[in-house]
Amino acid sequence: MSTLGDVAARREPSMPPLFETAVQAILGMSWRPELTVEEIPAPQKIAPYAVAISADLEIDEDELGSGRLVLLHDPAGSASWDGDFRCVTYARADVDPEMVADPLLTEVGWSWLLDALERNQATYASPSGTVTAVSSRSFGGIATDPPRAEIELRASWTPSVSSSDDVVRHLRAWSELLCLTAGLPPLPDGVVPIAPRRSGSWLR
């Protein structure tokens, strides 16, 4: 786990102001109490600048799902992104095995991302991704294990970023996506997530 000092020392040289703004928005983000968020190593070769976080979604010590978010930045812009920032995410959660048989589940899973972005007024372009629903059943010596099913979403989109508020909108949309994937509804309007906890990991 990284400390705040480690993060600042590693990113201080020649960091573009807009990317620094994005990093500070992540540092100051207030997350839902069900989410435990921390920094993870970011990919080094996709873009000149990158920051990555992971989240575990738990209620009463039961893990409901998890996810990762990578924010990429190329000050020169990228034609494939249609912009100079790109969000890349992975989200997974256990679901009821009967849900996997629903042919509309993957379409619904994709709508969770778009709905979360729209609900949080997170302006974006060029979304792409895949949604996978799988089920498994045990046999032989572990035949008594219950059937399992899960849904996975891998997606990317180009956020419109000109201020820290823009970054926060996309962070809120991402956290909402994780919760929707695990079956938790969005927070009601007017309900404020908990403030970030500073002990331990840099984002906890």
Results as ranks from 00 to 15, higher is better:
residue 134 V to A: 15
residue 133 A to S: 15
residue 51 V to Y: 14
residue 136 S to L: 06
residue 191 V to S: 02
residue 59 I to G: 05
residue 191 V to E: 09
residue 140 G to P: 11
residue 197 R to A: 13
residue 176 E to V: 09
residue 188 P to M: 10
residue 30 S to T: 02
residue 41 P to K: 03
residue 178 L to V: 07
residue 151 I to M: 14
residue 46 I to S: 11
residue 56 D to S: 14
residue 86 R to V: 01
residue 64 L to E: 04
residue 168 V to N: 06
residue 149 A to W: 12
residue 70 V to R: 03
residue 201 S to T: 07
residue 136 S to R: 09
residue 51 V to E: 07
residue 156 S to W: 10
residue 69 L to A: 12
residue 200 G to T: 06
residue 73 H to K: 01
residue 124 Y to K: 05
residue 72 L to S: 00
residue 65 G to F: 00
residue 48 P to E: 10
residue 43 P to E: 00
residue 174 W to Y: 15
residue 15 M to Y: 01
residue 56 D to Q: 14
residue 184 L to H: 02
residue 159 P to G: 07
residue 151 I to V: 15
residue 26 I to H: 04
residue 87 C to A: 14
residue 60 D to L: 04
residue 169 R to N: 12
residue 75 P to L: 02
residue 68 R to L: 06
residue 20 E to S: 11
residue 176 E to I: 10
residue 41 P to F: 00
residue 119 R to I: 02
residue 2 S to Q: 10
residue 82 D to S: 10
residue 67 G to K: 06
residue 196 P to R: 15
residue 47 A to K: 01
residue 87 C to R: 00
residue 169 R to G: 07
residue 197 R to Y: 11
residue 14 S to R: 12
residue 103 P to I: 13
residue 203 L to E: 08
residue 56 D to C: 00
residue 29 M to P: 01
residue 117 L to A: 08
residue 64 L to Q: 08
residue 168 V to C: 06
residue 21 T to A: 13
residue 138 S to M: 09
residue 92 R to E: 14
residue 174 W to C: 04
residue 182 A to T: 09
residue 41 P to S: 08
residue 118 E to N: 12
residue 171 L to M: 13
residue 101 A to P: 00
residue 101 A to Q: 02
residue 19 F to A: 07
residue 141 G to D: 14
residue 52 A to W: 04
residue 5 G to S: 12
residue 81 W to A: 01
residue 93 A to V: 03
residue 159 P to Y: 03
residue 201 S to N: 08
residue 23 V to C: 09
residue 107 E to S: 13
residue 115 D to G: 00
residue 191 V to R: 05
residue 103 P to H: 02
residue 64 L to V: 02
residue 97 P to T: 08
residue 46 I to C: 02
residue 169 R to Q: 12
residue 181 T to E: 11
residue 57 L to I: 04
residue 130 T to K: 13
residue 151 I to G: 08
residue 165 D to F: 11
residue 38 E to W: 12
residue 42 A to M: 03
residue 99 M to Y: 04
residue 137 R to T: 10
residue 84 D to N: 11
residue 191 V to H: 03
residue 101 A to I: 02
residue 74 D to C: 05
residue 126 S to M: 12
residue 136 S to G: 13
residue 48 P to I: 11
residue 78 S to F: 00
residue 173 A to M: 03
residue 4 L to S: 12
residue 54 S to W: 08
residue 195 A to K: 13
residue 58 E to A: 15
residue 53 I to D: 03
residue 75 P to F: 02
residue 200 G to P: 05
residue 1 M to D: 10
residue 155 A to S: 15
residue 193 P to R: 14
residue 186 P to Q: 09
residue 122 A to I: 05
residue 186 P to N: 09
residue 98 E to L: 10
residue 6 D to I: 05
residue 57 L to Q: 06
residue 45 K to L: 04
residue 94 D to S: 14
residue 21 T to P: 04
residue 147 P to G: 07
residue 203 L to C: 08
residue 18 L to Y: 03
residue 78 S to P: 02
residue 177 L to M: 07
residue 193 P to L: 14
residue 190 G to N: 06
residue 203 L to N: 06
residue 178 L to T: 07
residue 147 P to S: 10
residue 1 M to S: 12
residue 71 L to S: 03
residue 65 G to C: 07
residue 137 R to N: 07
residue 139 F to W: 07
residue 44 Q to N: 03
residue 68 R to Q: 15
residue 89 T to P: 00
residue 37 V to H: 04
residue 37 V to F: 10
residue 7 V to H: 03
residue 68 R to V: 00
residue 198 R to H: 14
residue 198 R to G: 05
